[in-house]
Design a protein around this nucleic acid. Structure first.
Lengths: 195, 195
DNA sequence: TTCCTTTCTCAACGCTTGTTGACATCACTC
DNA sequence: GAGTGATGTCAACAAGCGTTGAGAAAGGAA
């Protein structure tokens, strides 16, 4: 048989998709294991690359984390794209939007990575806080009424709880539910806080 | 000035509260930094003790985690103790119970430790799952109606979300709210899922 | 007092981590 | 085709980790 891929040093022939490969691997590791347990070494191994190359491309671990967990679209963009401006039932509309957002693998991994990592890495916690403020801010019209700040926080609470119970500590039947059914249940919870 | 506590080897004179000191320190570190960043070394330092002593007392890190994050009371016990059997508003009653539970520092730290650690340590995630099943099981009468399993999961969702938004990624105004006001808001969310 | 057990410190181990510096190979421009 | 920069590997580092083993000091029973 031929030599088992001697893996010489130096640049590989042909075009390279390494940057994207590394970002994908990093996003996945951060999402599944959190900041500390995702290491340069296992990320690089997933991408079929030397750890040092990851450092050269993206800098420190913090830098890599930021680059890998940047969401591809904002909630507002997704809302426009899917057309639903202000449906008859705003709670169900928002629920569907959130579920649809988390349905996209890349964005879900980015979210999961940030939320999981926020449990132990303060910088990630700050990113989650900012993200919640930004994303929720785009939906202030929905959250009118008394104490809009508290209502917004209760919406965020349900979003974080959803991510936990569907992916971090999967609990049935929510963990195995279809997106459509999940949106119904979430909408039922959100309805208490949307005017 | 006197010698700066030369810290000789061997047993210290007088009675010892070291076991409890170590458990308290461990619970706090696990709660504030999660499983990986709470180390034998910083826990031992907090307790004013050598890391090796912690190992000798409690065994492996997993063992220490289990010992330090054991809740002192169950929800059911707390419910009996606080007298509220089945109030007129079951959602508000459960909300008050949960908030009251998390109001006790020792139990809150135990919960926080488990939940934070569940983000990266699978064994802790399993503990959270079991705990939710056990504690929620005691309240099945409240969760009657159609799809009791999904309703129970939605209650768990709000509980996890609450812990996150009040202590892990503190978001105002919920993070700085009084227990009473918080219970009102949480009750409003739970009401959608209790018959 | 003597002896055993418990409590406690110290020094070290093997391992993994993030990060670095030297160097090899390829693509591309002039 | 020479030179330059992007891409890639390898070996090593200092630091921190969980854990171990040997031994020191105190408490308690005989």
């Amino acid at each position: 048989m031929s030599a088992p891929a001697p893996r010489r040093s130096g640049r590989r022939p042909g075009p390279s998709s390494t940057r994207e490969d590394v970002l994908r691997a990093a996003r996945r590791r951060f999402a599944e294991q959190g900041y500390d347990r995702a290491t340069f070494r296992n990320i690089a191994a997933d991408a079929g690359v030397d750890p040092a190359l990851v450092v050269q491309f993206f800098g420190t671990k913090q830098d890599l984390f930021v680059a890998a967990t940047r969401p591809s679209v904002s909630l507002a963009e997704l809302a426009e794209e899917s057309g639903a401006g202000e449906p008859a039932d705003p709670a169900l509309g928002l629920a569907r939007l959130l579920v649809h957002w988390l349905g996209k693998e890349e964005d879900r991994y980015a979210m999961l990575a940030r939320i999981r990592s926020a449990a132990s890495e303060p910088a990630a916690a700050e990113m989650v806080r900012e993200m919640i403020h930004e994303q929720v801010a785009g939906f202030t019209p929905l959250i009118a009424g008394d104490r809009p700040d508290a209502r917004a926080a209760m919406v965020a609470l349900q979003f974080l709880g959803l991510v936990w119970i569907r992916w971090v500590v999967p609990i049935d039947p929510i963990a195995s539910m279809s997106d459509d059914e999940l949106a119904e249940w979430l909408g039922r919870g959100l309805r208490a806080f949307l005017a």
